[in-house]
Design a protein around this nucleic acid. Sequence first.
DNA 1: TCCTTCGCTTCCGGTGAACGGAAGTCAGCC
DNA 2: GGCTGACTTCCGTTCACCGGAAGCGAAGGA
Lengths: 306, 306
Amino acid sequence: MPSTTDAEPGREPRSGPRGRARRGLPEGSGLSSSGGRRAPSVTGRVFSILEAFDGDHRALSLTEIARAADLPVSTAHRLVGELAAWGALERGADGAYRVGLRLWEVGSLAPRSVGLRERAMPILEDLYEAVRQNVQLAVRDGHEVVYVERLAHPDAVRLFSRVGGRWPLHPTAVGQVLLAHAPAAVQESVLAERLPSFTPRTVTDPVALRRILAAVRRDGVAVCDGMIDLAALSVAAPVRGEDDSVIAALSVVVPSPSDGGSGGGGIEPRTLVPAVRAAARGISRALGAPTAARSDAVTRRGGTRP
Amino acid sequence: MPSTTDAEPGREPRSGPRGRARRGLPEGSGLSSSGGRRAPSVTGRVFSILEAFDGDHRALSLTEIARAADLPVSTAHRLVGELAAWGALERGADGAYRVGLRLWEVGSLAPRSVGLRERAMPILEDLYEAVRQNVQLAVRDGHEVVYVERLAHPDAVRLFSRVGGRWPLHPTAVGQVLLAHAPAAVQESVLAERLPSFTPRTVTDPVALRRILAAVRRDGVAVCDGMIDLAALSVAAPVRGEDDSVIAALSVVVPSPSDGGSGGGGIEPRTLVPAVRAAARGISRALGAPTAARSDAVTRRGGTRP
DNA sequence: TCCTTCGCTTCCGGTGAACGGAAGTCAGCC
DNA sequence: GGCTGACTTCCGTTCACCGGAAGCGAAGGA
């Protein structure tokens, strides 16, 4: 039994705040030179070096890497040297290390991001042209959404998310779509967590969330108003794969009408629903989803090509 | 002296055909159980596993990985297990391994690809809207171009390149631009190689190529007609960074007018030059390039937004 | 049904790759 | 000139890694 894929243990919730050692939690405060556990494989150390980089830390010195990865400098030096020799890291003229092109190349073979992206792109383009706002494509990984693609108009609402970035599932429209169609075990496990709140409008109550998820399944769209940022409202719809399961979600983010300030010339969110739904079906069809193919005539955009 | 970045040793030219062992070359043929050299670090083995994946091999079984990476199955099994546990690889329901989302995430922190891409995207979009053909953004790595982004219209010429893919410098317009502005050492070293030919029109003669590079520097554009694919013509211009050095190249690919067949309703390539040049300057400006900023008024695209 | 094949997984003893403290080097700064 | 902080090199010890071999289980053929 090849197994593994489905049950998914939720992949350790994205290690704590950076800089904090990644050992256990046993405070103790002591240097713990003997007690502390550690995943002591070379591979593990390499990973912890890679994890030292994130959206806010794209360039790190050797010492910073060593500190973030909780490794002795000399060890970090050796490993970083190997990583840089292969091209996983690159060293700038300033001596700082950055993620290298080679690593990006391999990463760009990931079917769940780039593979998906390639097929979705033309349709995302069209949707973007139509709304001239933020258009996002995301997948679920464990208990989080990972943004795979994003087209952003310079004048559109500024978002907190980022291509390659992660967010919790419950306060984002894409997350709600993905959660609503996730295996029951995942849903329960998310609902059992204490969910973080970002604005007064963030829904964190399990009962309320459960109701929302049911609505999302019923309507085929999720609408999130000001749950992460009071100024933004997003509308998302599910993207289905060959086996008709939901593998991604598509969203448009516009200024929130309920946000007093900026939203002035905003679009009425209701009008976005058909466009988002149609685009999501379009992508599903491009991926070979059975149900999307059925209503072909209806969903087809623009004129037929001669 | 932090060094390293510039001299660039050309990074071992993308290991041979896959499946071929990666040991030295000493044919010998023998099992070489004792003689054979090998880069025997764990990190190196991990890399050779990652290298087993490429555009034509996005899903591999354990045995295939072991064969491609030239590792004993049991060793591959252990390492692949660690990679999968972290998320660098993912195992599908079919038991095959694919590149994982986590690796893609880290890769998407690479400043030379995604960082560049993020700033270039809006301008690429506009150019794409204008020409409705293939628009590409690429950087140089050693003696190759690496394609960082690509917008392709469904009806445009089908290209051989791929986001995340590599090609030699000399037969591509982006490559010629990047080579023309590369450090002298790199240029000489490329010109000294025996350059592969792809079509009858591929320029491989060092003298001719040198002339082309000079023209590219003079004109600020490269035009490549049918050097990789007789049906395609591409026009490229340089993108400059903060220090005014060329860090990327932008191109538009259209059907070749000299190609008898399809090119029918093609665009006259000459007309593309200003658009490509303007877009490249636009990106340079967005990146903070000094020369691009200067002629701001001239390069500014479209009307000012109210 | 039994046998073979093939791919994956597990086990385990020997060993050399990796570890990391310590010392050396180099800038920048007081 | 001495100090600080970051990076690099050295080297003896040790334990993580290696990989052959055996065990499994599914698929296919007789």
